[in-house]
Design a protein around this nucleic acid. Structure first.
Lengths: 194, 194, 194, 194
DNA sequence: GATGAATGAGTCTTCATTCAT
DNA sequence: AATGAATGAAGACTCATTCAT
């Protein structure tokens, strides 16, 4: 029994379970028994379930930021980069039995009434803004006109989001393929204008 | 104090609570206390929480089908109808404190492993297919070429979904506005070609 | 839908279900749904579940009294009659998937503390006394000496009870066969002495 | 106020309550409130009510096995040992307000349809077989002829069971006294033949 | 740094019974 | 004579959390 790195084992387990079943559906009992940790050990590392949720979303965010940074530093055209990002989404969905965006899925379970104070919701907003910024950056490389770039970025962002959402709902990949094709077309359109 | 119409009161309460907080987050206790009903009364009308969930999604589906039928029977151009549908989404989100699609939110809480057997997931798929069909119908009225119509319909569907998802995530209406503008542009583009 | 004789239908259903699953395990919901009766109809005929239980045990008692009367009026020797009674037990157990004495099974579920007041327990006692009397009657026909007859009757009674109990516990018929053989031997022994 | 030894307290409480009122009649609530334990504490130690039932029957079995082992190791004749065993039954019934065999009482509440798979029923069978073996052992010490020993053992077993059952039903000890006397007679009879 | 035992409030569901019609 | 709708109390079980060691 490798009892070291309890914290990491818990976080890894939570990453998998939260993603597959949703934050609200998974209890800490399931997490600690899967991670083979004692309950008290869990609370030594995370003050609460919500804290674990935050750590989880943070780690997802970090990884996905890295991936976007990789793409940005690629020696490719922006259009190709956009395509790459959709390709990654495709792989991600296939690997994870069609479970889509962890943030959107978590957001589904955070009541709206609260006036923006809950940490989990803040992370959702931050993450989404970061993705939007990513698309804006790429859009700026495609068209130099600011308002057009903003519009293009937003459209790519929404296509990406819709594809993710509906791929999960329908447990199918066609939404990604359609969104990718349209993203391509949009990039091409704005490129030509340049 | 005997109450009449318990079933309806329960369904109405559930409609509101499930939508605001999510199917998994709301317990039967909250529902019956809000609906001012006894627990056993609840189970006289619904064999289980899941059955209530099904009834809820069904009623949402029926209402939304009606709304789409209304739009279809409007004496307007298809392009206008598309705009109308996005306008309705806008109103819906504003009224419901930015809670988006009940189906997507419910889907977030259904583990993916199950082999498509769960009734709730089936309803998600049915509903989504119905919306997609709606957009295909409109697209067919915009362009007569079949492959183009299919593509246009799918794009509108994804824009609509993305707008709904991100409006909820960001608690903002800009995604709807951007999606609506782009939907408009797409309709115009395909219309011209005709 | 033959809605007449609701009372009888309920009693018949209860007879079957109580015997198979035990008085405590079967709920009225199961009874009325099996009997295809409304709940209020049930309470029109029986003031409570316990009242139904009493009616059930009473009807079982009546039938079993009849059967014993039949045997008593048989133009056979008492020894043969004893055998017949064990034979009937054998058939009863086979037919009823090894569920034994309804009275004993019900008694298992009546707490002992109550000081003899519960109607169900009274019926248990009455029924058992009746069976004991039956064996005493037969024993008197086998041996005319009063104390010996009493002893023989009691032994037959206990063998009969033990066979019934263990046939149910072990879901086997060997206890009946062994008890029947021993009953036979006892009868023969006391007969010879005469 | 933190309590220690919760598991033992729960098991002890269950032992008493299950025996007095029957496994089906006693709910977890009654057990935990009597044992002064929290509900979650109960489920920390027993995964389900049935598991507690199994632990209970097991502990009863263990104690009764010990008691039979004690009797077997007694430096007495087998006939005396048989009498001792009936004497113990007498004491047991007196102490426990005439509640008889926990296994028989539990068996009364397990539907027969199940194909022998339920753990509780398996324990019933195991226990009964163990008692039968005990009587066979004693019988073998009384008569060396194998078939006769088997018959004697079975008869003692059935007398014992019948006495237990009817003592509970009638809330009286005469069945034990009669059965004991007859057991004695049987032992004597088979002894003489030797 | 790690743990097993304990907890109160909550989960969904069924109980036997009563009401108005 | 029969019914559908309503009910409070109880059923078994799980939740996220805290304690002493």
């Amino acid at each position: 029994m490798r009892k070291a790195n309890a914290r990491q084992r818990i976080l890894d387990t939570a990453t998998q379970l939260f993603h597959q079943k949703g934050y609200a559906t998974v209890g800490i009992n399931e997490i600690i028994s899967t991670a083979e940790t004692a309950k008290a050990t869990f609370y030594q590392h995370f003050p609460s379930k919500e804290a674990l949720g935050e750590a989880w979303l943070q780690s997802v965010h970090d990884r996905s930021e890295d991936s976007r940074a990789d793409i940005l530093s690629d020696p490719e055209t922006a259009c190709v980069k956009v395509r790459e990002y959709f390709q990654e989404l495709r792989k991600f969905l296939k690997k994870g039995s069609f479970r889509g965006c962890p943030y959107t899925n978590t957001s589904a379970v955070i009541p709206a009434m609260a006036d923006g104070g809950e940490p989990l919701h803040c992370q959702v907003v931050d993450h989404k803004k970061s993705i939007r910024r990513f698309f804006h950056k790429l859009a700026t490389q495609i068209t130099s006109e600011k308002p057009e770039a903003k519009r293009l970025g937003d459209i790519l962002f929404l296509l990406y989001s819709g594809a993710t959402t509906e791929a999960q709902n329908l447990r199918s990949l066609w939404p990604v393929d359609v969104a990718m094709a349209e993203a391509d077309a949009q990039c091409a359109k704005f490129s030509k204008k340049r």
